[in-house]
């Protein structure tokens, strides 16, 4: 079991967390094409590398972003979405 740093609750074993998938910017639904929207909904950036991901700490109900290298499984930093600069 890996450890993960919740920005609020500190380092916890992975079993306390739920993976929320990659953090992705949504295209503007009013201006994007059907094809662009379908790609947003279905396609994923599946190659290994440093990714921004959603993670959820269950016991405290905390969503946060983890920057994780999906190749090495090393997390470089975690922060609450939108509070990237503060941390």
């Amino acid at each position: 079991m890996k450890l993960l740093q919740c920005p609020i609750n500190g380092i916890r074993p992975l079993s306390e967390f739920t993976y929320g998938g990659e953090y992705r910017d949504m295209p503007d639904p009013d201006t994007c094409t059907d094809k662009e929207w379908a790609a947003y909904v279905h396609y994923r950036n599946g190659a290994p590398g440093l990714k921004k991901e959603w993670w959820y700490h269950g016991p405290s109900g905390t969503w946060f972003i983890a920057e994780r290298d999906t190749m090495t499984d090393k997390v470089s930093r975690t922060y609450i979405a939108g509070q990237e600069e503060k941390q």
């Binding site: 599946g46 290994p48 999906t70």
Partner: peptide, 17 residues
């Protein structure tokens, strides 16, 4: 390893590993 290969040809897929 599919995404590593499809990235070489810029083909988008839904595949995650």
């Amino acid at each position: 390893f599919t995404p590593r290969i499809t990235d070489m040809v810029d083909v988008e897929t839904p595949i995650v590993i």
